[in-house]
Design a protein around this nucleic acid. Structure first.
Length: 241
DNA sequence: AACTACCTCAACCGCGATAGC
DNA sequence: AGCTATCGCGGTTGAGGTAGT
């Protein structure tokens, strides 16, 4: 049973409490949060300590606004995982599930409300896929360029670096023809992180998103997302490269 | 300057899953 | 097998900050 008593402190953490928790974790590591709270001399529940560490204190957390790249990833991965915030956050180095959740609630849900759409409606999904996500991609490249743009690479050794977004054309009215082999060549040339390309050369009733990443074992893999215009289904295919 | 409305995000809560006895 | 403790996740709240009037 979670420790509950009258003297348990709640609310904002003080700098003193933070340093006690950090010190204890440096000595004993993460986990067994109730014990950790006790040895740290904190009048906090283990649950509260865990949350404070994961969402605020642990090193390598990214601060500041969610970048367009990260926003794109959140929207894309929400199609795949739904409200599984921790799963989405795994793909956003330095962001917690709370960050992802807050973004979704404050930005995406608000937008749906303004459009008088249900968040899970076909109408809103269509808006995300064909308007919002392309506009986020468009923010990644300078005007007049339709070539592959390479932004800074995300290195697994530097978790504070933003995930990489590679854009193959971000213009919805000036289509760039890229055959599939070019796309794969481009993707496979970035073996060090998360890459996204959006291919606008697919038939007008179909949008293809390529999302590639590598896992802890350095396995490099790629997801293709085809979304039909009707948004009735979102098919996924994983290819091991 | 004062008030209000809105936004952000840290923190809490409830609950289900899992581990250990 | 059943009980208890712990963990982790998703949903929600509310304090503090900021922009608008």
């Amino acid at each position: 049973m979670e420790q509950v008593s009258m003297e348990m402190k709640k609310g904002p953490w003080s700098p003193d409490e933070d340093s006690k928790l950090i010190h204890s974790i440096s000595l004993f590591g993460q986990g067994r949060w109730n014990s950790l709270a006790h040895v740290a001399g904190l009048k906090r529940s283990g649950k509260s300590c865990r949350l404070r560490w994961l969402n605020y204190l642990q090193p390598n957390l990214r601060r500041g606004k969610i970048t367009p790249q990260e926003q794109f990833l959140i929207l894309l991965l929400h199609f795949r995982f739904g409200n599984r915030w921790s799963k989405i956050a795994e793909n956003l180095p330095g962001r917690s599930d709370n960050d992802v959740k807050n973004y979704w609630r404050t930005k995406v849900q608000k937008h749906a409300k303004e459009l008088h759409c249900e968040i899970n409606s076909q109408q809103f999904r269509h808006f995300l896929l064909y308007q919002w996500m392309p506009s986020l991609l468009a923010q990644q490249i300078p005007t007049s360029s339709s070539e592959l743009i390479v932004t800074e690479n995300y290195s697994p050794n530097n978790i504070n670096t933003c995930p990489n977004v590679n854009v193959i054309s971000s213009s919805t009215d000036s289509f760039v023809t890229e055959d599939d082999s070019n796309i794969w060549n481009n993707l496979s040339s970035f073996e060090d992180g998360i890459n996204i390309s959006h291919d606008f050369s697919t038939p007008s009733d179909m949008t293809l998103y390529n999302y590639s990443s590598h896992d802890e074992d350095d396995q490099y893999y790629c997801h293709n997302y085809w979304a039909s215009a009707e948004m009735l289904s979102l098919d996924e295919m994983d290819l091991w490269l």
